[in-house]
């Protein structure tokens, strides 16, 4: 009976996967996006080891110098090299945003599977709660929760973003699951006497993976957006982190005298979110055709 459960013979599925990968690798936006993300990830991993100056402690005697051959991006008013800080500044956001996204995806997927599979009262209740959460703009909700928790650690930012994103992901997964449970293979598994958790996670889940993957990459872009915004308004990452948004918040009052301390981290954030968006866009085109 087990052959009945398999949605497609193994070799065919593998061929389809290879075809998708080939399409992805031919998409210029996917390549550009991946290269930029790869660049920032390696900067995050290597951090202070590859920068010309220490991003946090090294204070050169030159305060607020404009960009030159010695300091490519200039120095800030404490004499820290902006180029070094921009390179090292990718670390915290590349830790918090993906972690929050993964948490939200796992939780949201479980929630979406359960509501989509069982429907009924569980679904109705959950959907109302999700509607209520989604009625408040992300930033307002996050500010409220962070203020209430009283702590502004890396963890609270991660958890807040994960909590806010879970219902959004759950909604997408639920929609995908609703389409799947009508299909014969689910009925076959049920008739075979499989228990609900098995059907949900072993039978349905693999078939709704493409939309989940796309949704996760889209959320990653928004997570970076949210972390940067929260940090800038003082409710996210805190100094002495060399995070880009911390740098912007720190130097923004002095924008008119030393534009380079703000512009370069701002460009760095932009390059990262645009790269993530390019990747999610091309994934969407390939997986959801």
């Amino acid at each position: 009976m087990s052959e009945l459960a398999a949605p497609a013979p193994g070799s065919e599925a593998r061929a389809a996967r290879r075809e998708r990968l080939r399409l992805l690798l031919r998409s210029p936006s996917f390549i550009i996006g991946s290269v930029v993300i790869g660049f920032w990830v390696s900067c995050a991993i290597l951090g202070g080891r590859i920068t010309p100056y220490d991003p946090i402690f090294d204070q050169t005697p030159d305060l607020s110098v404009s960009p030159s051959s010695e300091y490519w991006f200039g120095t800030d008013r404490l004499g820290r090299d902006v180029f070094s800080r921009v390179i090292a500044g990718s670390r915290d956001i590349l830790l918090v945003a993906p972690l929050a996204t993964v948490l939200a995806t796992v939780f949201g997927t479980a929630l979406g599977l359960i509501t989509g599979y069982f429907r009924g009262i569980a679904d109705d209740t959950m959907s109302r709660v999700i509607d209520a959460v989604l009625a408040i703009p992300l930033i307002v909700l996050a500010v409220t929760v962070v203020a209430s928790l009283g702590s502004r650690s890396v963890w609270s930012v991660t958890v807040v973003i994960a909590i806010v994103f879970s219902p959004i992901i759950a909604r997408t997964v639920r929609a995908a699951v609703l389409g799947e449970v009508q299909l014969d293979y689910v009925e076959a598994a049920r008739l075979r006497g499989e228990r609900s958790p098995y059907v949900m996670f072993v039978e349905v889940l693999p078939n709704v993976m493409p939309p989940i993957l796309v949704e996760a990459t889209i959320r990653l872009g928004y997570a970076i957006f949210a972390v940067a915004t929260l940090t800038f308004i003082g409710f996210g990452l805190q100094p002495p982190s060399a995070d880009w948004a911390v740098q912007i918040a720190d130097n923004y009052p002095f924008l008119s005298e030393q534009w380079w301390t703000v512009l370069f981290p701002a460009l760095a954030i932009s390059s990262l979110v645009v790269a993530v968006n390019l990747v999610s866009d091309s994934l969407q085109q390939v997986l959801e055709r």
Binding site: T229, F232, L255, W259, V262
Partner: peptide
């Protein structure tokens, strides 16, 4: 679409500058 994903603080800062 690229502009849509850049945080408004960043676009705002560049506009101010």
């Amino acid at each position: 679409l690229s502009l849509a994903v850049i945080p408004e603080i960043v676009t705002g800062l560049v506009l101010i500058l």
